[in-house]
Design a protein around this nucleic acid. Structure first.
Lengths: 245, 245
DNA sequence: CCGACTTTGTGCATCTCTTCACAAAGGCAC
DNA sequence: GTGCCTTTGTGAAGAGATGCACAAAGTCGG
């Protein structure tokens, strides 16, 4: 009878843990820059803004990389987390939609520094196509599929208006992309096996407003009635990345 | 013995629910624009990209606003969710750090449309101060506290480089702000009662890379060893919102 | 070589969130 | 009115994440 020795790094690191690994990585890089060679879970937890028990449990999912009585070797842990996150390889990223946000993303310094390389900028507006941004020439969205295949793009950032998002999404998936970062305020429908993460400024602000309201009053005005004459104004489809797409 | 009748809208809507309300709101606004007066939990769930049981449970935390056998009145539900989120009032927002991202945020159309009003733009760089962006003149960061108080700013968006983020954070909190949206890749330390939400492009990409790697190979290369000669390059403190602050 | 001290890794209890499944509620046709 | 049909609202079970608390493992000074 073969007893399975419970092995960390089995398969399946909890999502919540994966979401925190980049945080630890950043904290570790900060420590490394300050020349710190070893760190305890307690100190690293403070630097990353989490509870130390949680940090230890998270790291235990990767393996036993700490030394009891001492802590974690900063460089070694940086390497292990980077490897787990897939940052030891180079990822080609394409940005679709070169509006205000698309430009900001293209110029984002943190891209290059972490294994992500902007391999293409796309827009549907002829007025924008040809423009040079962050060392890249904006290409017409017509060439999306071929460029994705040719340059091995595996992650696409959608920064188009909401109305164009699904269409762009469908096209890049057809071209083989399975990881999408969506800045457009739209729900993307994708087949199984495709990962979508969304970033939405408007939603974040609304969540803050909720808590702010709770703090200010003791909750929203009591009474669930329709006030007379209320007309709820429709939300515009305005996108954070509302570009010329 | 006083039996508490479990009352929806008691106090305390689950965080997970609050985070989804803006999603429902957007979906409802889409339906309203198409002139739809009534919607079932099933249809609304599809439009919002969630499971219908979850949607119903979420809405049940606000109250009993549906009609069995029929569904939900679109306009009424829009109003109720808006009220719960505090969107029936006007929130003054200040943006600190007018780099690429700060500019994109200032020009973001979705701001105005939803009860959020940009009441001030700040930067520490004299070269940027005085510039006119989205109808507002950029002010020097020195005036942060007084402007916050004078204009009743209750939400601050931090789009500065990581190095300046904590300092800006401390200052706006001292000025009475208790809701912060942080785009700088830094962990902010705040006293109790202050809400911070963070948006970090780099983290989102790293999470995508993790899943992408899992899909591509059968996990990261086996073997936990340090490869010879590996030098882990330090992460630059490069911020999405790396501005001139 | 030993004993005191530090810090990890984890079993366990708890809490939160999700999902299922169905009784209760209401509309509608006749 | 009455009965059928649709859809909500929710109890309960399940899954996942969190945090405590401590045994095990390792360091270090003497």
């Amino acid at each position: 009878m073969t007893r399975r020795i419970p092995q960390a790094r089995e398969r399946g690191i909890p999502d919540a843990t994966v979401a925190r690994l980049p945080l630890y990585l950043r904290a570790l890089n900060g420590l490394a820059e300050r020349g710190i060679a070893t760190v305890s879970s307690e100190d690293l937890a403070v630097a990353a803004g989490v509870n130390s028990a949680k940090l230890r449990k998270d790291l235990s999912h990767l393996g036993s990389y700490g030394t009891r009585g001492v802590g974690y070797d900063v460089q070694y842990l940086i390497y292990q987390i980077s490897r787990e996150l897939g940052l030891t390889q180079d990822w080609a990223v394409a940005i679709v939609g070169v509006g205000n946000l698309g430009r900001a993303l293209a110029n984002y310094g943190g891209f290059v520094s972490r294994g992500f390389r902007v391999a293409g900028l796309f827009d549907a507006d002829p007025a924008v196509v040809g423009e040079r941004i962050a060392g890249l020439v904006v290409e017409h969205a017509d060439g999306l599929e071929s460029v994705i295949r040719k340059r091995g793009v595996s992650i696409v950032v959608i920064a188009t208006p909401a109305t164009a998002a699904q269409q762009v999404c469908d096209r890049v998936i057809a071209a083989g992309v399975t990881s999408i970062l969506n800045f457009a305020p739209a729900v993307l429908t994708v087949p199984d096996g495709v990962d979508v993460r969304k970033v939405d400024l408007s939603i974040e602000l609304q969540i803050l407003a909720f808590h702010e309201q709770r703090k200010a009053s003791g909750g929203p005005m009591m009474g669930d009635e329709w006030p007379d004459g209320v007309v709820v104004v429709s939300e515009r489809g305005a996108a954070l990345g509302e570009a010329s797409q």
